[in-house]
């Protein structure tokens, strides 16, 4: 027999991506530097993409003139009010659908019918209903956040471990206690991952909401820049929206770490 033998070839591993903190930043910076280089060297024409340094300069001017916060303020308040309205109604309705047969049978088809409607198409309707002021903007964002939240929430309630609910009943917990202490926390992972999507949709709809009758707001700023083909300003606005998205996602990530530390 051969004493040395051959070692068994390793064939496990992989299929388990881990998050590497700074790689995302590096990719982003590399992309920006690449575009900067291209626009300076001239093989990207200034008509097709603005120079990143120019966008940054526009952004700085926006900040210096104080206009940034003049635009950001109303947008943030529209986003907050609309999203909180839509998400809270959505979570409540989703839980009701998850708990009651009649609510489920009655509302699931309705939600399925509302979901695919592009909410932007309903903007004129909202203007008639809620006026050209803030009301229609809140309504549009709220409505857009509502449907994905409902779907995510009732799915999450469906996925709550039934044995935990039976356990609650077997210890004589009241209906309300079971909902509050077992169903809600059990559905929380699904609700939060649903919120990630609905809040991103809320940011998308912010621009749509500011199409009509908005003097200030990030959306109004972008739309104005777009109609003037002012690419630097357009990109400055888009960057703000992106940052907003990253911020929202970060906040939800924090909430997940705080609320869902119990997950294995």
């Amino acid at each position: 027999m051969d004493e040395t033998g051959t070692s068994v070839a390793f064939r496990g591993g992989g299929f388990a991506p881990k998050s590497r903190r700074w790689v995302g930043v590096v990719v982003f910076v590399a992309l920006v530097l690449f575009v900067e280089w291209g626009t300076r060297a001239g093989w990207i024409s200034s008509l097709s993409l603005p120079r990143p340094s120019d966008v940054f300069e526009t952004f700085r001017q926006l900040y210096d003139s104080g206009l940034l916060f003049k635009h950001l303020g109303p947008s943030l308040s529209r986003l907050t009010v609309g999203a909180i309205l839509g998400a809270s109604v959505g979570i409540s309705v989703g839980i009701l659908i998850g708990l009651f047969s009649y609510v489920r049978s009655g509302l699931v088809p309705l939600v399925a019918a509302i979901f695919p409607i592009p909410k932007i198409a309903l903007l004129p309707l909202f203007v008639i209903w809620f006026g050209i002021g803030e009301g229609s903007k809140y309504a549009l964002i709220a409505f857009g956040t509502f449907t994905p939240t409902v779907v995510a929430t009732y799915g999450a309630v469906d996925n709550v471990d039934r044995t935990l609910i039976r356990m609650g009943q077997s210890f004589g917990l009241s209906w309300w206690s079971i909902v509050r202490k077992i169903v809600l926390p059990g559905a929380m992972p699904g609700i939060l991952s649903g919120l990630r999507i609905s809040l991103a949709i809320a940011i998308i709809l912010l621009v749509a909401a500011e199409m009509l009758g908005a003097e200030y707001g990030i959306g109004a700023y972008i739309l104005e820049a777009g109609s003037l083909y002012d690419l630097e300003r357009l990109f400055a606005g888009v960057v703000i929206l992106s940052l907003l998205g990253v911020l929202v996602s970060g906040v939800i990530g924090m909430a997940e770490r705080r609320l869902l530390g119990w997950r294995t």
């Binding site: 044995t163 356990m167 077997s170 004589g172 917990l173 206690s177 202490k181 119990w262």
Partner: peptide
């Protein structure tokens, strides 16, 4: 709670600590 179960799969609330799981059945 005169008739009290012990389940095969333990049925502990994963989001509550050991003492939290016990206080759950006392709170009501």
């Amino acid at each position: 709670n005169p008739l009290t179960y012990i389940f095969q799969d333990f049925a502990l609330l994963p989001w509550r600590s050991v003492s939290g799981n016990i206080s759950l059945v006392l709170e009501d």
